[in-house]
Design a protein around this nucleic acid. Structure first.
Lengths: 211, 211
DNA sequence: CTTATGTTTAACAAAATTGTTAAACAATAT
DNA sequence: ATATTGTTTAACAATTTTGTTAAACATAAG
């Protein structure tokens, strides 16, 4: 008779809180964000906020786990498909770019939080459960088909992630220094990288190595 | 008769404070670090800390400017030399790696702070005074000599910075996920990238584009 | 109607942090 | 010897934030 006893008469208050908390935490950081900020953003009372999440820590943990759960699938998705390698790379860049366009603050948020409190990782990584070994071996095999045998696949991963993430992580600085703070030019730049990055990688892989 | 009236009898207290503040700010962030933390790290009293730097903001600003002054020259140094382009790239990676090895927390610290408070940039960038236009045009010219005409040099910059910085920015996460948290293996990985990254870039530049 | 749940307002205690001040002391310079 | 500077100890006010509690109210469910 009561499948979800809790959701009786709130018109999605919990959802509103989670959205607000996500937004505020991402923009101000864990320490910079106050419960009052979050309550304001959610359009509710601070007391009610504590009523849903007893304390800031619990709320933050919920948000952080949720954010990681958003990010992790993006990492692997492209390499789960069975397209040709170069297509996978293109897809990798595209999936990440899509995700970053919707969550531009995500990388800095995650990085900063993990950097300040590495212990948080332990609990979450298991929960996500990603099998890196399989993926890495797959990439090694693909690399061999390009005649590249002396490259740890993790270098390729680091290269790709670096190239994709940097423009978002370093945006305020890079946009100002290299684009005279022209926001629209920078957004065009970000779009261009959907082509530029895969092309750069392709060239590096197909390089003059196959004599 | 008194050239520097201030430095009378302190055995380098100000230096100790600056070192301590740099360390604590970088590791805990601006909000996570308390004046007490810094005083402790410097081995002095909190009152004395306020005696040297009236408030936390002034101290932080001093540190932040100092940190940026450390990072910025690294960006340009390699491209000031007049070696062949590929040598410049190798040098770029090396200079950055050297700097990051000594200041591993620097990128996250700077990124996080600028991301939270972009206004801080304005004041400092002028002070450093880097001429991006000259550098960019130089790179464009070099790219043309490789037959690459359709590439905004800023893509190359973003690629290089991303590949160099990512392993430091994402270290806790990447080390755990891809290296089973094997610290020494990761440090070897970081060293390997001194070769891997320039090679990757060289391949991409020399790629099959010169028919 | 009565009850339970969600919600607001108000008030409060506890803690942490910041910035300031006063008093005392050591050592150096004049 | 005296004044100045650096330094410590102690104490304090002001602020911010967190977490809690009590009281009142609305509404939907029983």
């Amino acid at each position: 008779m009561e499948p979800d006893k809790k959701e009786n008469l709130e018109p999605g208050t919990e959802r509103k809180i989670l959205e607000a908390a996500g937004k505020v935490f991402m923009m101000k950081g864990r320490l910079g964000a106050s419960m009052q900020d979050i309550a304001d953003e959610a359009g509710i009372n601070r007391t009610l906020l504590h009523y849903y999440f007893r304390n800031k820590e619990k709320l933050f943990d919920t948000i952080f786990a949720k954010v990681l759960a958003t990010a992790f699938p993006t990492i692997v998705k492209a390499f789960m498909s069975d397209q040709p390698f170069l297509e996978k790379i293109k897809m990798f860049v595209d999936t990440w770019t899509d995700m970053l366009k919707e969550n531009p603050y995500l990388p800095v948020f995650v990085i900063q939080e993990i950097s300040l409190n590495p212990d948080r990782l332990a609990g979450i990584i298991q929960h996500v459960g990603l099998d890196t070994d399989v993926a890495l071996k797959g990439i090694t095999k693909e690399l061999e088909s390009y005649g590249i045998v002396d490259m740890d696949p993790r270098h390729l991963i680091a290269n790709m992630l670096g190239m994709v993430l940097f423009p978002y992580i370093g945006r305020p600085l890079f946009q100002k220094v290299a684009f005279g703070d022209d926001k629209e030019a920078y957004e065009q730049f970000l779009e261009d990288r959907r082509e530029q990055v895969p092309r750069f990688i392709n060239l590096a892989l197909q390089g003059p190595g196959q004599e």
